[in-house]
C-alpha cells in the first residue's frame, strides 16, 4: 500500500516538473518571437536620440516628428494608393475566381487550381524577379502602376482562397430558392449569394490590404522613382542608421497590421449572420 502510494506521488512530482518545463519552453518560444517587437515599441518612446541607446525617459516626440516628415507622408500616400487599388482589383477578381472554381467544372480546372496557389507558396524574391523581368521585357515604366499590378498578382490568390473557404459552406439550395421566387441569375447573386459570402470577401480584402501594406521584396523590385512606399522608406532610413523615428514608424505599421488581421479573422469567423458588419 505505502509502496504503491510512493510510486504514485513520485510520478505526480515528475509530472509537475514536466509541466513546468513545458510551460517554460512555451514562454521562451514566445519571448523569442515577440521580445524584439516589444523592444522596438518601447524604444519608440525613448527620449534618446539613438535607437539602441540607453533609456532616457518617455517621449512622444518621434511620433510627432513622423507626422511632420514630408518624405514619410509621401510614402504613406503611395502605400495607401497601392494597397487601396490593389485590394479593390484583387478582391473583385479573387471573388470571381473563387466562384468559378467552386461552382463550375471546366477543362484544366485542376491545373488552374494549382496555379492559383502558386503566388502563395512561391518565394517572394522569385516572384519579384519574375515580375521585374516581365515589366522590363514589356517595356513598362516602373512606378506606382507596376507595384499595383504586382500586388494584384499575389493578392488575387489570397482573396480567392479566403472566399472559397466561405463558399464551401454555402447551401446551394438558397440560390435555388431565390430562383424559385422569380429572382434571375443576377438578382440571385446580388440579393442572396453576395450578402452571404460578404464576410469572406471582406476578410479576403482586409488580408489583401495588410499584405500589400507590408510587402517589401516585391515592391522593392517593381518600384520606380517617386513610388516609394512605407516599407521601402523605412529600409532607406535604416541604411542611414536606426533612429527612434524608424522605431515609431515600425510600431505604427505593426499596430495597423495587427488590427487589420484581427478584423479579417473576425469577419471570416462571422456566422451566417450576413452583412450587418458592413
Amino acid at each position: 500500500m505505502t509502496g504503491s502510494r510512493g510510486v504514485g506521488s513520485g510520478t505526480r512530482r515528475r509530472g509537475r516538473w514536466l509541466a513546468r518545463l513545458l510551460a517554460l519552453h512555451g514562454v521562451l518560444g514566445y519571448l523569442f518571437l515577440y521580445a524584439p517587437i516589444v523592444v522596438l515599441v518601447i524604444y519608440s518612446f525613448n527620449a534618446s536620440r539613438y535607437a539602441s541607446g540607453a533609456w532616457r525617459g518617455f517621449t512622444l516626440d518621434w511620433y510627432a516628428r513622423l507626422f511632420t516628415n514630408e518624405a514619410i507622408g509621401a510614402a504613406l500616400r503611395n502605400t495607401l494608393i497601392v494597397a487601396g487599388v490593389s485590394t479593390l482589383v484583387s478582391t473583385v477578381f479573387g471573388t470571381m475566381v473563387a466562384l468559378a472554381m467552386e461552382r463550375y467544372d471546366f477543362r484544366g480546372k485542376l491545373a488552374f487550381d494549382a496555379l492559383l496557389y502558386l503566388p502563395i507558396i512561391i518565394p517572394d524574391i522569385a516572384m519579384a524577379v519574375m515580375l521585374l523581368l516581365f515589366f522590363v521585357l514589356a517595356r513598362v515604366q516602373l512606378g506606382l502602376t507596376t507595384i499595383i499590378i504586382s500586388h494584384v498578382a499575389f493578392n488575387i490568390s489570397f482573396v480567392a482562397v479566403v472566399v472559397r473557404a466561405r463558399l464551401a459552406y454555402f447551401d446551394i439550395t438558397l440560390e435555388e430558392a431565390a430562383q424559385d421566387l422569380y429572382a434571375n441569375e443576377w438578382q440571385t447573386f446580388r440579393r442572396v449569394t453576395l450578402p452571404l459570402i460578404m464576410p469572406g470577401i471582406l476578410g479576403g480584402a482586409l488580408l489583401a490590404f495588410t499584405l500589400s501594406i507590408d510587402d517589401f521584396v516585391i515592391t522593392f523590385f517593381t518600384a520606380g522613382p517617386g513610388s516609394t512606399t512605407l516599407p521601402l522608406r523605412i529600409y532607406s532610413m535604416v541604411k542611414l542608421g536606426v533612429t527612434p523615428e524608424v522605431n515609431a514608424l515600425s510600431s505604427m505599421m505593426l499596430l495597423a497590421s495587427i488590427g487589420l488581421v484581427l478584423l479579417s479573422l473576425l469577419l471570416q469567423k462571422g456566422g451566417g449572420g450576413g452583412i450587418e458588419i458592413a
Partner: peptide
Amino acid sequence: YRRPVNTVFQNYALFPH
C-alpha cells in the same frame, strides 16, 4: 424564375440574412 410554380424545400432554404 419564369415558371408559375413555387417550391417548399426539404430543409426550408430560408434566407438566413
